[in-house]
Design a protein around this nucleic acid. Sequence first.
DNA 1: GAAATCGTTGCACTGGGTGCAACTAGTTTT
DNA 2: AAAACTAGTTGCACCCAGTGCAACGATTTC
Lengths: 270, 270
Amino acid sequence: MIENPSASSVGLRRDMEILELLAGHGGGRDVDGLGVSWIAQRLGREKSQVSRALRSLESEGMVERDPVTRRYRLGWRLFALAARTSQSRLVQVAAPFLRRLAMIIDEDSHLCVLRGDSVLTVLSVPSSRAYHRIWEGVAIPVIMAAASRSLLSDWDDDQMRAILRAKLPGGLSAELGDEKQWLADAAHVREHGYTTTDVELEDGVLGVSAPVRDHRGMVAAAISVSVARVRDEARLHEMGRLVGETARQLSIALGLPPGSSFDYPVTSGP
Amino acid sequence: MIENPSASSVGLRRDMEILELLAGHGGGRDVDGLGVSWIAQRLGREKSQVSRALRSLESEGMVERDPVTRRYRLGWRLFALAARTSQSRLVQVAAPFLRRLAMIIDEDSHLCVLRGDSVLTVLSVPSSRAYHRIWEGVAIPVIMAAASRSLLSDWDDDQMRAILRAKLPGGLSAELGDEKQWLADAAHVREHGYTTTDVELEDGVLGVSAPVRDHRGMVAAAISVSVARVRDEARLHEMGRLVGETARQLSIALGLPPGSSFDYPVTSGP
DNA sequence: GAAATCGTTGCACTGGGTGCAACTAGTTTT
DNA sequence: AAAACTAGTTGCACCCAGTGCAACGATTTC
């Protein structure tokens, strides 16, 4: 058999597929929870296998079963474990900062981290306006996230080029912006402490992001704000300065020594 | 232990033991993360077994490895799974708690969440008495909801003041109570685990509410009960204690580590 | 009440996990 | 610098746990 270098055991893979399915369908509006047969069919596995796997997962508290509908959903144990991840601490420290930021500029604010070749949003604070999609827990490819510019900002140019080329499957490269723009954006982050992404992610929305550093000065996360397209260039960069300043304060709250070489002043500039 | 009737598969049990160990020692001790041999010894298992299990877990993102120290800690996948479902799970898990509460005190009980600058009621359990308005799916402004006191209870005073001022359009401020009362109510929540709102929302009705925390300890929702105005102050606070205790138990059911700093005892007091 | 759906269980088979030991790699000791 | 020690990975033979099929009980549907 051809070995996957990062191979996972069959049992674990099956369990993870089940958990992922339960998580994915958690946002469903209809009835909540999934039945054994539905999961089995969706996964292309034996009913019996899924039934037994779920019972095991239940006995460990990873899933729980509704006593009446007999449907499964994710369990308390998973949430308890999640609370102990490194992301969890980050979120708790960052929450007040993002709330304040969202209140001031009244736009959706997100906290994103880099995981592998995806950008994971770990905290979303919606603006006061209407309903916006919650991105928490959702991972999107590096090249499609506005926050990537900040997350990758202190990578070598070569490494950045490498990940961009690897992750741009042909045709997409044109519409998603070229390397030069990425490198320029990263440079802007290094100089000014934030960057704006003029690539359209959604209609009429700009991305403003800034890097958050941990105690060692390494980029640990990024604050990303979706800004409704504005004509006023100056106002956009004023927002950028605000995002950058918030990221700087959050970095210090996370243990970045104030005044260190990484704790540079945030300046507003094109 | 002799024999668990609802037995878990061998592989899963081993994986869970590992994850639990990582969770227990990941919470900021000396150095972050655990090594293979240490885990193996602690679990009384073969090194090789632990080594392979951890590699599988890593490939699924359940754990992640520090590239330099080669130590493992809990991974982003746990966080991502939990974040995506905590919302929808809330209602399912909360339902029995609210039903029980409504049965004991025989008043309308509601579960409310904060969305943007509105308070959304996601679950309503009516009392046995006659007709009461159903609030499910209804969003009302923060300043007009009794549950807000609990939902905002661990915000900074500054942030709370900010949202109050921003959302009080002039003339309304007078009749809806002043900032001091809000801050006092929030403080009461932090100290006693619940609060009562003596501002009249409807005729002769008081609002009793308590914060529900998610696995991270953040306020995720609030239980809010409309109590027919009672003369007896002591009875009101006894109800408050009951609401607070229900919210506490619900929090734990949602994954809040029992005994954590957020899991404070609920006390009845003015 | 027949039929369909959903979930669980019994059982023979086999493939993946297990434990031992050898191995590499890094660090400290002599 | 060789030896000794620690940390982690890998090869391999054995064998038990997981697999798939099918039958079964429990509900729901028509």
